[in-house]
Write a protein that binds this DNA or RNA. Structure first.
Lengths: 107, 107
DNA sequence: TCCCATCGCTACAATAAACGTAGCAATACG
DNA sequence: CGTATTGCTACGTTTATTGTAGCGATGGGA
């Protein structure tokens, strides 16, 4: 029998916790959809995310809110916090890489 | 009845495909563990990844190899390709962010 | 007031992904 | 020959995600 954290892999070093949070389904996508100061209602976000299940979207939103990356503004929907924008900024090179990479993929 | 891709969310825009690949469990972690030209055997990688199941690790490795990010060098184990290093480079700001963020978390 | 649309969010059964353990074939070294 | 390692797979169990439906609350008209 092996002991395991609630959702392991984040034991110890700090980077792991973020990789663990972002390595869940739709986490990266949500941040992507909220980039550039976009604000989306829960349903608009669901549409943007390819009609993903509201169950898991709410779960991710809760986690991202608890982590301080996302906030819910009454009457305006979800959007990135200052910290969340900071995170998204750090994603920019990754997104640019994705563009280049996708050209290699479809060749 | 809704039609859905094999592992959806990557439909259409190119960035999605990468987010989809990296948004799977252990993907980000594997790249992290292979950073800085490290080369790890499958079992060493398993140890590094908190004894994750070899089933899923092999699956991720296959996907990452197919995507051209990781390669298996006979007698040396797994390591990042040139493209993989390029990807890892684009992760650097994210890792640095994680360090800062983790300090806010544990407060 | 009533109707109706929308909001954020949840229940719940069905399906897919990941886990944990064990072990295979291949290779290398004694 | 044995033994240890490599990459990798089988398979039953557990966990995560899906898909559909619907809740209570809120805001506008009519």
């Amino acid at each position: 029998m092996k002991k395991r954290a609630v959702r392991g892999s984040s034991s110890g070093r700090p980077v792991m916790a973020l990789l663990d949070l972002l390595g869940r389904r739709w986490s990266l996508r949500i941040i992507w959809e909220l980039r550039d100061d976009r604000s989306l209602t829960s349903r608009a976000l669901r549409s943007a995310c390819d009609e993903a299940s509201p169950t898991v979207l709410q779960a991710r939103l809760s986690e991202l809110r608890e982590a301080g990356f996302v906030e819910l503004v009454a009457g305006d929907g979800y959007r990135l916090t200052g910290l969340g924008k900071d995170l998204a900024e750090n994603f920019l090179p990754l997104y640019r890489f994705a563009e280049r990479w996708s050209k290699l993929q479809t060749h």
